[in-house]
């Protein structure tokens, strides 16, 4: 029962990601794609700052003692948000999400294969190549 409830919450969280993209597109059209991106990171950063202050464990001291390359993940965030803000008004939310999914899985497969960024090396498996193949056809049909 608890499992099904958790699945529903996560499904709703996934829906939220599309709502976020659906809000971003029209906002970017009126105020500029980069301003819309700023809005996401600023509001998100503020909310998470609140969450961190009241979180049961204090993680910030450890955060800044990690190797510097591990702290660079956030650099790519704005690239991603500017892209969805630009793409959704023209492609639609559905097509954008399917294209993102394809890029994500394909790259994940490559990173695993070469063991990049300290990820354990894993050979390309049939499941994910099969999934990629189906997503490619879906992308062709959907747009």
């Amino acid at each position: 029962m608890k499992q099904i409830f958790t699945l529903i919450i996560v499904f709703a969280a996934g829906m939220g990601l599309s709502v976020e993209a659906g809000l971003l597109g029209p906002l970017g059209e009126t105020v500029g794609h980069m301003s819309a991106t700023l809005c996401i990171f600023l509001v998100g950063g503020l909310l998470l700052s609140l969450a961190l202050i009241f979180a049961p464990t204090r993680a910030l001291p450890q955060l800044f003692s990690q190797p510097r390359w591990m702290l660079t993940g956030g650099v790519l965030g704005p690239v991603y948000v500017v892209i969805i803000t630009t793409a959704t008004p023209i492609l639609g939310v559905g097509t954008t999400m399917v294209a993102i999914l394809f890029g994500q899985i394909a790259t994940g497969l490559l990173l695993d294969h070469f063991g990049a960024f300290g990820v354990p090396r894993q050979r390309v498996d049939r499941y994910r190549t099969g999934a990629l193949f189906l997503i490619a056809i879906a992308l062709f049909l959907i747009h």
Binding site: G74, Y80, A99, I100, G103, Q104
Partner: peptide, 11 residues
């Protein structure tokens, strides 16, 4: 958008 997905995977 494919590139966007790729940045997401690297991130």
């Amino acid at each position: 958008a494919l590139l966007g997905g790729a940045t997401l995977a690297v991130q």
